[in-house]
C-alpha cells in the first residue's frame, strides 16, 4: 500500500505542551482521530492534539511505531503490547488510557484498560480512591454495611503503604 510514492508520508503531531513529533502516517493512522484528520485534509500542517501531553504522546508514538512494524500476527502483537505496558506505573497507565480514548485507538485502549484492571487486582479501596481521585460519599454506617456484605473480598488485599 505504501509503495505508491516511494517515500512514506510523515505527519507532525503537536502535544498540548507544544512538543512536536514526527511520525509515519502509516503508523499514526492507528488512531482513528488522526486518520479522520488526515482524510479531512488537515495533515498538511501540524496536527494539534489538545488532550495529550508530550510525555504521553512520546510513549503513544513508540507504541504506534512498534505495533505497526509487526506483521499481521495477533500473538506477536499481543506479546509486544504486554512487554510495552509491563513496566508502566499507574499514573502513566492513566495518562495512556485517556490518550488512547481521545485518539480512538481501540487496541491500545483494550490493552491499557486490562493492564489497569490487573494493577488494581489486589489493591485496597483506599488505594483506588486515592489513585482515581474519588471522594468517599458514603456515611460511615453505609460504608460499613456495603463492606460487610462482601467481607470475603477484602481477604488477601495488599496493605495500604503506597503513598
Amino acid at each position: 500500500m505504501a509503495a505508491e510514492t516511494g517515500t512514506p508520508t510523515t505527519l507532525t503531531l503537536k502535544s498540548n505542551d507544544d512538543e512536536l513529533f514526527s511520525v509515519a502516517e502509516s503508523a499514526a493512522i492507528l488512531s482513528v482521530t488522526i486518520r479522520n484528520m488526515v482524510e479531512d485534509g488537515c495533515a498538511g500542517g501540524v496536527i494539534p492534539l489538545d488532550n495529550v501531553d508530550g510525555k504521553t504522546l512520546a510513549s503513544v508514538i513508540t507504541y504506534m511505531n512498534g505495533i505497526s512494524a509487526i506483521p499481521a500476527d495477533e500473538e506477536k502483537k499481543k506479546s509486544y503490547r504486554d512487554k510495552f505496558l509491563s513496566d508502566k506505573d499507574f499514573e502513566t497507565l492513566a495518562d495512556m488510557v485517556l490518550a488512547a480514548n481521545y485518539l480512538n485507538m481501540s487496541c491500545l485502549m483494550d490493552a491499557v484498560s486490562a493492564k489497569i484492571a490487573q494493577v488494581m487486582e489486589k489493591k485496597s479501596v483506599g488505594w483506588v480512591r486515592r489513585k482515581f481521585g474519588i471522594e468517599n460519599d458514603y456515611t460511615p454506617e453505609e460504608e460499613a454495611a456495603v463492606k460487610e456484605e462482601h467481607k470475603w473480598t477484602f481477604e488477601g488485599v495488599e496493605t495500604d503503604d503506597d503513598n
Binding site: 487486582e121 479501596v125 482515581f132 471522594e135 468517599n136 460519599d137 473480598t153 488485599v157
Partner: peptide, 9 residues
C-alpha cells in the same frame, strides 16, 4: 475485586 470496589463510592 468488583465486589470490594462497591465500597469505593
Amino acid at each position: 475485586s468488583l465486589l470490594r470496589f462497591k465500597t469505593v463510592c
